[in-house]
């Protein structure tokens, strides 16, 4: 993954706040992601990782703060402007979110045909090439999503995310629900695809093996704030009690799970 060189961050987030009723999910998040950089946001379940991604994608409207993509605000955009910004993005969803009513190759080609207005025949060829990139045979392209295993769905989701050659790729819990070997296969594919695209990547996960493998930098989100942010190589000597507890998976520490005793 290339070192950042552009002084304007690809994504710039300042004081991002989002609450649902009285539940404050994001409480002043600050984060910069440089062009070509791969950042992973770690944090426990319910810490606001997915909400952070959805705010950047425009799926949720923040209550306060700044989100900039290539130096331009990405908040409060009209439908046309939002579609233009989203053309820069590719996204691998936690559940893959494949369209049930479309065949696998149509899922992969969707962004090219609907978003990019590409001819179906040409889009089909690209879709099969992307499926090959993620290690799937051509026959898989003619299957329906319901016929795929969890690992295959993730691969198809990855192929769909990179099919439009996006500048920025988001990965939402890319290894959740997969066995360790398949997780490693997906991690390798993510690292390979991001490297080949030269894309900026933002991933969220609580799988430390995945975070170490696919990131240049890791940020930890706790109670709606970034409590640590640094190079992946330094996470084991972060000196941050929250990070230490999280990466070692200890029950004891400053992070208290909100679990009621029976």
């Amino acid at each position: 993954m290339s070192a950042p060189s552009n002084p304007v961050p690809k994504i710039r987030i300042r004081n991002l706040c989002k609450r649902f009723g009285s539940n404050v999910v994001l409480d002043g998040v600050d984060l910069d992601i440089a062009t070509g950089e791969s950042v992973v946001v770690i944090g426990g379940s319910g810490s606001g990782k997915s909400v952070l991604l959805k705010c950047i994608l425009g799926l949720l409207e923040p209550d306060d703060g700044i989100i900039e993509v290539d130096g331009l605000s990405a908040i409060g955009l009209g439908a046309g402007e939002r579609e233009a910004v989203n053309r820069k993005f590719g996204m691998l969803f936690q559940s893959a979110a494949l369209f049930d009513s479309l065949k696998v190759w149509e899922n992969v080609a969707f962004g090219l045909i609907q978003g990019g207005r590409m001819d179906r025949i040409q889009a089909r060829e690209i879709a099969f090439a992307k499926l090959a990139d993620v290690g799937l045979k051509a026959e898989v392209g003619e299957l329906w999503p319901a016929e795929l295993s969890g690992g295959m769905k993730k691969r198809v989701g990855l192929a769909r995310a990179i099919a439009t050659t996006p500048e920025i790729v988001f990965f939402d819990e890319p290894t959740t629900g997969l066995d360790p070997i398949m997780s490693d296969v997906i991690n390798d594919l993510i690292a390979k695809c991001v490297r080949e695209l030269g894309a900026t990547a933002l991933s969220i996960t609580h799988d430390m093996a995945s975070a170490r493998k696919i990131s240049d930098r890791i940020a930890m989100l706790y109670k709606g704030r970034i409590v640590w942010n640094g190079p992946t190589a330094e996470i084991d000597r972060s000196g941050n009690d929250y990070v230490d507890q999280f990466i070692h998976g200890r029950a004891e520490g400053p992070i208290r799970m909100e679990v009621r005793a029976p």
């Binding site: 939002r82 579609e83 979110a97």
Partner: peptide, 13 residues
């Protein structure tokens, strides 16, 4: 199942 969110991320209203 987040398929509607996926539509939006694929620049499709």
């Amino acid at each position: 199942t987040e398929q509607i969110d996926a539509l939006a991320t694929l620049s499709t209203n």
